[in-house]
Design a protein around this nucleic acid. Structure first.
Lengths: 92, 92, 92, 92
DNA sequence: TCGCCTGATAGTTGCC
DNA sequence: GGCAACTATCAGGCGA
């Protein structure tokens, strides 16, 4: 995909090619807006872990729990199997 | 944070340690809820890039633009931070 | 520690205060040189993982092995114990 | 990469699968060696900051300076990258 | 010395 | 299916 095409496309739409510029600006701004919201949610999540830590829970293990809950058990078992294989190969 | 401590802490709060269980469950669920929302936003962002591509814009260039704008503001913040440091270092 | 002090210190050493500047430049350059070397080693390590992958080994598990080998077993067992506790608390 | 595949691959190479074991051991040891060197460099860097502090420089300011210089060159690279993208996007 | 916070590293996901 | 960008995790440095 080339800017060239973008320019042509915009020129199909207007006399000045300024339309594409406006579209681009709008798209970029929508993206940046959504990324801000995403960052805010990430901050909220961090805050919960901090709160949990303050209540005596171990955040590191909590993260592990969240990971396990969304992980397919089949793949998890396979990973463990490979790990065992390597551990034995190294005589650990 | 040790398991022992976690257990003790929960036992300070209840007769059975069931309170800590409920707290933990609640925290985990709040986190999972927020992560769902975050994933939804990420999907929205992907969608915008796809839409932009459909309108003849190059997503790769757009990502670079977004990245660059983010770096600009980050660097601005760094500049201010170092200015503050100098000001303090000079005892002003 | 303040720049003020640094300036005073340098003025004890010279008439111009340019000495401190030279020292600072030298220190910064030594640091940057070492960080380059560090980055080069990191690149070498990445390369070995890539090579391993090319030979049919799973890099992710290899990293896990390296981590385990440098980890104290006591702490590892404790982490596992906490994890079990949480898993049971959540009825997983 | 699956365990099965790893096993098969090793068995293609030798009669006993012992070759893969030796390969794995060798790779792990090379990695551990490089990581030691990397840790040594990190220690050297820390030492320089300590030495600098002993000479009246503020390590915090120094770290900020190093960070800023790194960001400058990173941003320069990003600028060049986007310029390349534009050039290609315009079909030049 | 401990807890916090930032910077470095590893893992995941999306794109080609 | 491999590669690259992005995100989340972890560890080390700093301040209280």
């Amino acid at each position: 995909m080339a800017t060239q095409e973008a320019i042509e496309k915009s020129e199909q739409k207007s006399k000045a090619g300024g339309i594409a510029q406006e579209q681009l600006r709008s798209l970029i701004e929508r993206i940046e807006r959504l990324e801000e919201e995403k960052a805010a949610l990430a901050a909220d999540i961090r805050e919960i872990y901090a709160e949990a830590k303050g209540n005596g829970f171990d955040p590191k293990v909590m993260r592990q729990v969240v990971r396990l809950r969304k992980m397919d058990s089949a793949e998890r078992q396979e990973q463990e199997a490979i790990l065992d294989l390597y551990i034995h190969a190294l005589g650990m």
